[in-house]
Amino acid sequence: MTSPHASADGPGSKEPTSDRPADPIAAVPVRYPERWVAAGVVLVLAAMFVNMLITNPAFNWPFMFEHMFSDPVVNGVWVTLSATVLSMIIGIVLGVILAVMRLSGNPVLVSVAWLYTWFFRGVPRLVLAVLFGNIAILYATIQIGLPFDNYWMPMLGLEGDARFFEIDVRTLLSGYMAGLLALALSEGAYMAEIIRAGLQSVNKGQSEAAQALGMSRGKIMRRITLPQAMRVVIPPTGNETIAMLKDTALLAYVPVTIELFYQLQAIGTRTYQIFPMLVAACLWYLAITSVLMVGQYFIERRFSRSERGVKDRIVGGRH
């Protein structure tokens, strides 16, 4: 720099100073002693907690680990997983149907969907589970046939009935089926709201453009609206799946005797080692939800990205 203005600390300097070496700021940082105090307190509390876990005999860790992986418990884990998967599948299908009904504009369908959601969101899942477990009180058998035959057959002067076959409800709705139905129907109500929000998040211009191209309503839903709604629908569906896994514990009250929580409790009461088995339940549910949360992390990362990020990867993958 030959310019007289280029002096390093001259306040009037106009020349760019990029060719001078950087002069890093060396200032004393602000200290935060209260952070250290808070961290110390928390660490002491944590140490006390760990100490209690180790020394309190009520935990009885050896007993817990011995029974945590016994056959009925591991079988219970499978029952829990299958109930989660099945109730979520049924719930999502129901949710799509209810959401489409809700947005259909047909007043009957709209009201029915609204009533459904109102009922299943308003009744606690535990109550639903017990209710469905006792549904055989209401119907001893389920008969398949034409509706209201007891009224119209006599009117037409016909005898007998229009029922083609019947099933014993206790066979059809064994404990597992009844509990599964309770969870799935309840999930349908929540999924309906999630899917409805997803469908409504898609810009109206999308369906208009598709209409203008001559696409039918069904095609627009399947090809244009639903795929775009997925971006909004998938992250909360992950949350619902994790919540559902935990709610399968409610099946114990249907009762579903082969279910994980029921089995753990049964061992606990049989052996008077109640607390270790409750801890085992916590550990099992934590382990499975952790796996699900890892899956959810990747799914959310995939779907919450900007449109462009996702597409870049898709385009890149086709090279």
């Binding site: 999308q206 203008a212 795929p227 775009q228």
Partner: peptide, 23 residues
């Protein structure tokens, strides 16, 4: 609905906001 769709398929439309399908 299907008959209206058939009528529309003979008419192209271009929108102010493009409305391309982003997916």
């Amino acid at each position: 609905d299907s008959e209206i769709s058939a009528q529309r398929s003979d008419i192209g439309m271009v929108f102010q906001q493009f409305n391309l399908f982003p997916h």
